[in-house]
Amino acid sequence: MFEARLIQGGLLKKLLESVKELVTDANFDCSESGIALQAMDNSHVALVSLLLRSEGFDPYRCDRGFSLGVNLNSLNKILKCAGNDDIITLRADDNSADSLSLSFENPNNDRIGEYELKLMDIDQEHLSIPETDYDATIIMPSAEFQRICRDLTVVSESVTIDVSKDTIKFTAEGELGSGNIKLKSTSSIDKPEESVNIELGQDVSLQFSLKYLMNFTKGTPLSEQVILCLSEKMPLLVEYKMDIGYIRYYLAPKIGD
């Protein structure tokens, strides 16, 4: 038996919005410790890794490991039927986990919606994400990162990210011209969520597709801050932390040109 009741149901709605364009079908791997999802996009350029810890649910029950194969577009459609303030409960039976039950309770507990989502067999690629010591780690406001990606998309389809001692610079060059945005590291004691924090081992310069970064910024509503981790010739990690877990996106760098 798998049962997970999420008081902040709106979080699940936001999460689905932030993965559905990158990945169509994926397994939700449920265990005692929580719910995890890892999947690459079709072109194998981007990877999504999502974790919701069991402590974030009330209650959470998972007697044995479950792998729930889900079409994320279908799940997203059903989740749109839940109110933003609804409590969402997910359930799957031991024997016949061929469907996932979802119930949506409104805050007054006087309206309960119940839905069933058919599950599917998904032949999942075996992924392993190694622990990495990154050359540069940047913590910055997520809305600022979203704006930079959106603005530079006007100029080019790629962005070069350069990190040096106390500056991160985003540069785009295209047919119409070029643009760049530099952010200096700042610290705000009153509003730490507005600071730009740069931890640097060595300078980094890497180029990435803006189309994918724009997709990653769908995670912006999940957290006020975004964490960018970069190392030369390594995939970029873009992470949004939540109280109950995280969503991490990885993006392969562009090489040569």
Binding site: M40, V45, L47, E125, H126, Y250, A252, K254, I255, D257
Partner: peptide, 14 residues
């Protein structure tokens, strides 16, 4: 896309 590398090398277990 020009010069776009893939993630297989980093994350895919054979």
């Amino acid at each position: 896309e020009t010069g776009q590398s893939a993630l297989d090398l980093f994350f895919l277990e054979s």
